[in-house]
Simulated assay, not measured.
Amino acid sequence: MAKMNPYLNFDGKTEEAFNFYKSVFGGEFPAIHKIGEAPGTENLPDDEKNRIMHISLPIDAHTTLMGSDTMPSMGHNLVVGNNVHISLHPVSREEADHLFNGLSAGGTVEMPIADMFWGAYYGSFTDKFGIKWMVNYDPQQK
């Protein structure tokens, strides 16, 4: 497997939180993606369009802190304590399927693993022990 990173969720505070983390760790954000940039978001409330869909802050050569905001209009409610995911970045599509299918067995799939509009093969779930996971295979990032 290529990488495993912490992924944090916030209720509209991701940008503020990541600017704080950046002030402590240093570094730069490779990109900040807003929810309103995604296809099919035209009818979302304006305040949700400005929420963060994805942000990352490289900490060192092996660790990247990642995060996003919840979407209340889509039924996503943040509960402090379940707002952390483990984000897996496998080296192949086959490894992504193996990790997703193995770890999600007996758990609850939130988003089935599939090709996504941003170019990755992605899925998310809560395992049978209540741990939240994301599997993100991006063939562009080796």
Rank of each mutant, 00 (worst) to 15 (best):
M1S: 09
M1A: 07
M1K: 01
M4D: 05
N5F: 06
N9L: 12
D11T: 04
G12S: 00
T14Y: 08
E16K: 13
A17Y: 08
K22C: 01
S23R: 00
V24Y: 02
V24G: 02
F25I: 03
G27M: 14
G27H: 01
E28N: 15
E28V: 14
E28Y: 03
F29G: 15
A31S: 14
H33Q: 14
I35L: 12
E37F: 13
E37V: 06
E37A: 15
P39F: 07
T41G: 02
T41E: 13
D47F: 11
K49I: 01
N50S: 13
N50W: 05
R51K: 13
R51L: 00
M53H: 03
H54M: 04
L57W: 08
I59E: 05
I59D: 02
H62A: 15
T63L: 15
T64D: 13
T64P: 09
G67I: 04
G67D: 00
D69K: 06
P72F: 05
P72W: 03
P72T: 06
S73P: 08
G75L: 00
H76K: 04
H76S: 11
H76N: 11
N77T: 12
N77R: 11
V79C: 10
N82P: 07
H85V: 03
H85Q: 14
H85S: 15
S87A: 11
S92R: 02
R93G: 04
R93Y: 01
E94Q: 15
E94F: 00
E95K: 04
D97C: 13
H98D: 13
H98G: 06
H98T: 14
L103E: 12
S104R: 08
A105F: 13
G106M: 03
G106W: 00
G106P: 08
G107Q: 03
T108K: 15
V109R: 11
V109Y: 08
M111H: 05
M111Y: 02
M111G: 02
I113P: 14
D115C: 01
F117Y: 09
F117L: 10
F117E: 03
W118L: 11
W118H: 10
G119A: 08
A120V: 01
Y121D: 01
Y122K: 01
G123V: 01
G123T: 02
S124V: 01
S124P: 00
S124R: 12
F125H: 05
F125V: 01
D127R: 07
K128G: 13
I131L: 15
W133Y: 02
N136Q: 07
N136E: 06
Y137E: 09
Y137H: 09
P139C: 14
K142Q: 12
K142L: 05
